[in-house]
């Protein structure tokens, strides 16, 4: 078989290399420090829908805190925030991230991620910087901004911050959307994500890149909550042609709140039949010591290359996707 050959064309691989150079130049010119943090860590992001891969580094019981395994990072977030707590001001990183069972047209279980943080950036400044990155690397003259609630209401006809489960189900039925098997007992967040994916996302970023902001409070992840009513998460995402390219937060800095969220996420993972993830971490220690107010963004570099080169399968921008790795 010819599966020793790359799945991306040389044209796209050259384009990819050029984009990487421009990306580094973009951050270097703005005084960001490029950093490197471990791919293998005793800590991992605690997320309901992210499954980290484990690697056995030390014999059972001899690892950090008695844990026998280490985690391949799903993003460099924890270690980069520890650098901020230790005095880092504006840092970026280009690295690999790993996510179990994610493979498809837009996913490879090992992928390239660009992540950056800047201390002192408030919520609008964080979005401004992302818009600047998108405009520069995708040669876009303007980047659109839409609120999650506004875009949702226009596309799906319901207010995502206030609608109850019945109203969300009704919105799907009214639009004759094919509902996944077993969704009868899915919770409110599943329905929000599902409707967003089917109705809202396909319309985002079609003419120019779009930043969606103000996510439902229940989907805050590591973002802080705003003071408004209803309370929304100060979280934003970049979309191009209906595909999510980046996710950013006005970062949560309160360690006690993160402990509460970690416990809540682990309770949901148990409901989903998934193993709990470590609720304690060195990030929590860093937050207790003092994480300065900042914004941070993670950008899927492979998807950026896809958007820049008009590829519609991630295989077209990777030399060797998982089945040829």
């Amino acid at each position: 078989m010819n599966d020793f050959l790359p799945s991306a064309s040389w044209d796209r691989l050259r384009h990819r290399a050029a984009l990487l150079k421009r990306l580094r130049a973009f951050f270097d010119e703005r005084g960001f420090l490029e950093v490197e943090t471990p791919l293998l860590s005793a800590d991992t992001v605690v997320d309901r829908h992210l499954d980290p891969m484990t690697v056995c580094v030390a014999p059972a019981g001899t690892g950090d805190g008695g844990r026998p395994v280490e985690w391949l990072q799903t993003s460099p977030e924890f270690c980069m925030k520890r650098l901020l707590a230790a005095g880092g001001e504006a840092i970026y990183q280009v690295t690999r991230a790993f996510r179990q069972d994610e493979r498809g047209r837009l996913h490879n279980p090992e992928f390239s991620i660009v992540e950056w943080y800047r201390v002192g950036d408030d919520y609008p400044a964080g979005m401004d910087l992302l818009a600047d990155v998108a405009g520069t690397l995708l040669d876009a003259s303007a980047v659109q901004r839409v609120s999650y609630g506004g875009a949702f209401e226009r596309a799906a006809g319901v207010d995502p911050h206030r609608a109850d489960l019945a109203a969300l189900r009704h919105a799907a039925a009214a639009r004759a959307i094919d509902v996944p098997v077993g969704y009868e007992d899915a919770d409110r967040d599943h329905w929000l994500e599902f409707l967003f994916d089917r109705c809202v996302a396909p319309q985002l970023g079609c003419d120019q890149p779009a930043i969606v902001y103000d996510y439902p409070a229940s989907q805050a992840m590591l973002a802080r909550l705003g003071d408004g009513n209803p309370s929304v998460a100060e979280r934003f995402e970049l979309y191009v042609n209906g595909v999510e390219l980046a996710n950013g937060y006005h970062e949560l800095t309160d360690g006690a709140e993160l402990r509460r969220r970690n416990d809540a996420v682990n309770a949901l993972r148990e409901v989903d039949g998934k193993p709990a993830l470590p609720a304690t971490s060195r990030l929590l220690a860093a937050m207790d010591a003092g994480l300065p107010a900042c914004c941070g963004v993670a950008l899927g570099f492979d998807r950026l290359v896809m958007a820049a080169t008009g590829a519609d399968d991630i295989r077209d921008v990777l030399a060797f996707p998982v089945d040829r790795a």
């Binding site: 493979r103 996913h107 967003f196 999510e244």
Partner: peptide
């Protein structure tokens, strides 16, 4: 077979 994972949501 098409794997979909919206944003930070659940896989479909």
């Amino acid at each position: 077979m098409n794997f979909r994972k919206p944003g930070k949501g659940a896989a479909l």
